[in-house]
């Protein structure tokens, strides 16, 4: 695990602050699931797993797993008091009918207009979308968690996605190791800056036009 004040952990901690009491939340596999490390244990939140659980609890220790109880990422989880199990049709009824307050997802590309591509790279990564399309399209609020640039240094936030879309215009907020950006009707707004990061660096590493607010930009 990286140190608690690394840019990556600050990004996860910042995303965790937007998980509020009383929410029903679905976390994608990878970075989004790691946000849980920064959610206060006492905060009343209902985690939804698309394979049929509301009230997902912490991952179980090796040796105490329940063979019948995994989350959608295959982790052997526990349940909180008050949890429920249901079939896959009911699970996605929760998603499509507006009961899911927030989903946090990963991204290959996210565009300034909120288009998200996170399920397919033609020719090299074609596993199928699972439940990502419905989560992205129907959660009341969609956050994307991603490094600001890929391993080659190219922006993950682009003017227009080149990969097949998961859903168009679905993203509300993007959390990266450098910044928090909000998708607004006027365009992508730089909402917050990570500690030690300059506006110029974020603009240089963002592939979409970025609206800079007047005045001091909050830090996280």
């Amino acid at each position: 695990m990286s140190s608690s004040d690394s840019p990556r952990e600050r990004m996860l901690a910042r995303a965790a602050r937007d998980i509020r009491a009383g929410m029903v939340v679905n976390l994608g596999i990878g970075l989004p699931t790691q946000v849980l490390r920064h959610v206060p244990p006492a905060l009343p939140v209902c985690l939804h797993a698309e394979n049929g659980i509301s009230g997902v609890g912490p991952v179980r220790a090796k040796g105490s797993e329940d063979r019948n109880l995994i989350d959608a990422g295959g982790a052997y989880v526990s349940t909180l008091p008050g949890a429920a199990f249901f079939d896959s049709a009911v699970s996605f009824a929760i998603v499509r009918s507006g009961r899911l307050d927030l989903t946090l997802l990963g991204a290959f590309e996210v565009a300034g207009n909120g288009d998200l591509a996170n399920w397919m790279i033609p020719g090299s990564f074609t596993p199928g979308a699972g439940g990502a399309i419905e989560l992205a399209q129907k959660a009341r609020r969609v956050g994307v968690i991603t490094t600001h640039t890929d391993k080659a240094g190219r922006p993950k936030i682009v003017a227009s996605c080149s990969l097949p879309l998961t859903a168009p215009g679905c993203v509300d907020r993007i959390y990266t190791d450098l910044a928090v950006c909000d998708v607004t009707p006027d365009g992508l707004v730089l909402a917050e800056l990570a500690a030690g990061v300059t506006t110029a660096e974020v603009v240089a590493k963002t592939g979409a036009p970025l609206i800079l607010p007047a005045g001091e930009i909050p830090r996280f």
Binding site: S88, A89, S91, F92, G131, E134
Partner: peptide, 15 residues
């Protein structure tokens, strides 16, 4: 031949 269906749509089509 693999046909991909969004997970909840697959469930609902079966239901």
């Amino acid at each position: 031949a693999v046909e991909f269906v969004p997970q909840g749509i697959l469930a609902e089509r079966i239901r």
